[in-house]
């Protein structure tokens, strides 16, 4: 039920200061899936209010996930 209001977002930790910890993000209500340390991105689920709370953290960018779809294997252009 709760999850239906949540959507998958990517939190980019790109600020000049120290990056927020996974715990800090979780405290803001962010359901963390995975922390990708090599590229400084945390993926997870958040509802609208959580997205606003996350955006108020310094050096954090929140963007929705986007989908990629290749044409079928025998399509003329791939």
């Amino acid at each position: 039920m709760e999850n239906q209001r949540k959507r998958r977002v990517h939190v980019t930790l790109g600020g000049p200061g120290p990056a927020p910890t996974t715990e800090e993000l979780a405290a803001a209500g962010f359901d963390v899936d995975e922390r990708l340390d090599a590229i400084g991105i945390v993926t997870g689920w958040a509802d609208e209010e959580t997205v606003e709370r996350l955006r108020s953290i310094d050096g954090v960018t929140v963007e929705p996930e986007s989908d990629v779809q290749l044409p079928p294997p025998d399509a003329p252009v791939q």
Binding site: I39, D67, V68
Partner: peptide, 28 residues
């Protein structure tokens, strides 16, 4: 042929950690 940007980011993260010199992404 379907994927999400999250899976792609996870792939980039993995490729960097594997020491890839070039990462080829025929997707978008």
């Amino acid at each position: 042929g379907s994927g999400t940007s999250g899976q792609i980011l996870a792939g980039i993260d993995w490729a960097i950690r594997q020491g890839a010199h070039v990462i080829s992404m025929s997707l978008g």
